[in-house]
Nucleic acid binder design. Structure first.
Length: 708
DNA sequence: TGGCCTCGAGTTCA
DNA sequence: CTCGAGGCCA
């Protein structure tokens, strides 16, 4: 062999090894820069010595003639679709069917994650990659050989000694999350087109006419099965086949394994489910296959799906749905919040019909319009959000123009017709005055004239952490306001049993929920009695609850408590000037102005007087301006679930000992009380090296200080 | 003036 | 839970 020929052979071997170690063993042997250098050297040599070029050279991944692009390819061995299971019961049925038919109570399965990518078939003849095809309808797919050659995780030549005459390998082409994120970040920077999700990214990449485009996409591959096999001894078990595929140079999911019986399958499902978010790729479930081929054969097929395998799916975290309407809700403070009404769709195990769009800016950023197809997600938290619009699916007229114009935020309040305005936020304060900028939030200027704001004010007043009127929910408050029974929060205390019954009758009538005669009458009476009782019970309250319940802007639970302690009684709070209020810790000019402004309003003073006349009462005392107790000056954060008491209760007890209970962990936190299943707050505490108490330690401390 | 740290407010569904 | 903004401190 000539010297260049030897070097070319060596380079190819080095590069193939590097690919194998990177993609199959997940154990990179050489740094990227060195890999690139090897490639460049090989390219140069092949240019100088055209006679040394070869089909399976790693330099030929891009550039193979895409002549047969997308031509139909018949799958001699059909590419199967799998049955789906969405619940443990369905998996149990699957296992039971097999156990019964095979007479084996605990059959063994090969188990692996189900990647969210694109199923393909790769054909190797005499060890060389000759054709790759998409799954298509299972019987016929499309020829995407040129594009698949650019995927480095797919070997162009099989490794190992025994070379099968023909080997078809089935697997999934996917886009790793990191690659997807990086790709989109780059696209956003350069103004290119972002990919909707890794799955679409993978599918779209393989449908490119120009393999160079495919080559630029971060694609990867996992093998999970076989098609046509000639001149190769098939092992007895699927798990052994996977091992053999690995040795032939194919990446196989490291999560793949075996499991026995229903218990084993479900344990695997849970284990993978827990690791789902930390896997480097998206999966939508796991696949169970009977491990022994003889048993697979015995089970056979129904129509097009095997009876020996099933896909156990996770509830989807992201779904496509359509926007049926964009409505605007009015909050307690008058803030207008746009909400997308969606065609119902299952996301993460629940049906989602609404998703907040936050504010006008967010709508503009997403450019959400009525009729749009959108991606909805329930991410780490529970609240659904619109991730993005799938613009290709936007309804258009014959001339290709969108059917609906960009959404325009209403300039009138949908509830009362008052004009709306952007909230001004303080930019800075100078001697000359205060400078404002317009914020993202739009508010209704109707104030308590606006029925929506009045309703929300009442809902807030009755809520658990405020006056705690049990049973008085949004629906009845709405009716009470609509029918004119209630204008201010004080009116609640004048309501009689008959008022409630009449209100409920009218509400049922209006909403078309017709109650059933006598029995319903009795139930309704009991319901009304409970409400009257709950309202009466709420009269005994505390100053801080009352202050919070009044709904003064920027006065939440914490500020209400501070105010109550600082002054000890309501009268001095009502009389306090802004100058006096800013003396209070955590109260600055903005909040002081809100408080003074609220009590300066004759209407508000009248409501307070009416509440007092109705018998609402609370204990008053002198000012208590310094925290006292063993925990004075200490800031505590509670996280996770405690077994012996609620978090609220624990917080109240700690406060009683002088502690300040905060909602988030920072360097100022004195210690964190962590219960069961504590999450990010505990992590943060560990990160900042903050003392952590478990429940026992908390209880011991509370007992030791007479707060048990 | 900038950068935390908190608090307030809004949000969905079973 | 997250975002935005008010308050505080360096």
């Amino acid at each position: 062999m000539s010297e260049p020929a030897a070097r070319v052979a060596e380079l190819r071997r080095l590069i193939e090894d590097a690919n194998y170690r990177y993609h199959v063993l997940d154990d990179p042997a050489i740094p990227d820069a060195e890999y690139d250098a090897l490639m460049r050297e090989l390219e140069a040599l092949e240019r100088e010595h055209p006679e040394l070029a070869a089909e399976d050279s790693p330099t030929r991944r891009v550039g193979a003639a895409p002549s047969s692009a997308f031509a139909p390819v018949r799958h001699e061995v059909p590419m199967l679709s799998l049955g789906n299971a969405f619940s443990d019961e369905e998996v149990a049925d699957f296992v039971q069917r097999i156990a019964r038919e095979l007479g084996e109570p605990e059959p063994e399965f090969s188990v692996e994650p189900k990647l969210d990518g694109l199923a393909i078939s790769l054909r190797y003849e005499q060890g060389l990659f000759v054709r790759g095809a998409t799954r298509g309808d299972g019987a016929t797919g499309e020829d995407v050989t040129a594009n698949l050659r650019t995927v480095k995780a797919i070997p162009l030549r099989l490794r190992g000694g025994q070379v099968p005459a023909v080997l078809e390998v089935r697997g999934e082409v996917y886009m790793p999350r990191a690659g997807f994120e990086a790709w989109n970040a780059r696209m956003r920077e350069t103004g290119g087109k972002v990919l909707a999700n890794p799955r679409n990214g993978a599918a779209g990449s393989l449908r490119q006419l120009d393999p160079k485009i495919t080559a630029s996409r971060p694609l990867a591959f996992f093998a999970y099965g076989l098609g046509v096999v000639e001149g190769w001894t098939l092992p007895a078990r699927h798990s052994q086949t996977l091992r053999a595929l690995r040795e032939l140079g194919f990446p196989v999911s490291p999560e793949a394994g075996t499991a026995r019986g229903l218990g084993g399958l479900l344990a695997y499902f849970r284990a993978v489910g827990e690791r789902r978010d930390s896997l480097p790729y998206d999966i939508d479930g796991v696949v169970y296959k009977l491990d022994r081929y003889d048993q697979q054969k015995a089970m056979g097929f129904v129509s097009r799906a095997p009876r020996w395998a099933i896909a156990h799916k996770f509830p989807a975290q992201e779904q496509l749905t359509t926007v049926e309407a964009i409505e605007v809700q009015v909050g307690r403070t008058g803030a207008l919040t746009p909400v997308a009404r969606l065609a119902p769709v299952q996301v993460g195990g629940v049906t989602v019909t609404n998703a907040t769009l936050h504010n006008a800016d967010q709508i503009a950023r997403l450019d959400v319009r009525v009729g749009d197809t959108v991606i909805v997600r329930r991410a780490g938290d529970v609240i659904p959000e619109v991730v993005r619009v799938v613009e290709e699916r936007r309804p258009r007229d014959r001339r290709g123009r969108p059917l609906h114009p960009p959404y325009e935020f209403p300039d009138r309040c949908p509830a009362c017709g008052s004009h709306t305005e952007a909230v001004r936020k303080v930019l800075r304060q100078t001697r000359a005055g205060v400078e404002y900028a317009e914020g993202a939030t739009i508010v209704c200027t109707g104030g308590l004239y606006c029925p929506a704001q009045r309703k929300q004010a009442l809902v807030h007043f009755a809520s658990r952490r405020a006056m705690d009127i049990d049973g008085l929910g949004e629906r009845y408050i709405e009716a009470l306001v609509d029918f004119g029974y209630v204008k201010t929060v004080a009116d609640l205390y004048a309501l009689t049993l008959d008022d409630f019954l009449e209100m409920k009758r009218r509400a049922d009538e209006r909403d078309g929920t017709v109650p059933e005669t006598v029995r319903a009458g009795k139930i309704a009476t009991r319901w009304a009695e409970n409400l009257v009782e709950a309202i009466a019970a709420s009269k005994a309250t505390t100053l801080e609850r009352l202050l919070f319940a009044l709904g003064i802007r920027d006065v939440g639970e914490s500020t209400a408590r501070t105010l109550a302690r600082w002054f000890g009684a309501l009268e001095p709070i009502m009389a306090a000037s802004e100058a006096e209020l800013v003396e209070i810790p955590d109260v600055g000019p903005v909040v002081a102005a809100r408080i003074a402004g609220f009590f300066a309003e004759p209407h508000n003073r009248e409501v307070i007087a009416a509440l007092r006349r109705a018998g609402v009462h609370w204990a008053e005392g002198g000012p208590q301006r310094a925290a006292e107790g063993p925990l004075a000056g200490r800031t505590v954060v509670l996280t996770g679930a405690l077994s012996s008491m609620s978090r609220d209760e624990a917080g109240a007890r700690l406060q009683a000992l002088g502690a300040k209970v905060a909602g988030s962990v920072s360097r100022k936190t004195s210690f964190v009380v962590a219960g069961e299943a504590a999450g990010s707050k505990l992590d943060k505490a560990r990160e900042l090296g903050i003392e952590v108490w478990d429940e026992d330690r908390l209880l011991a401390f509370l007992n030791g200080h007479g707060a048990a």
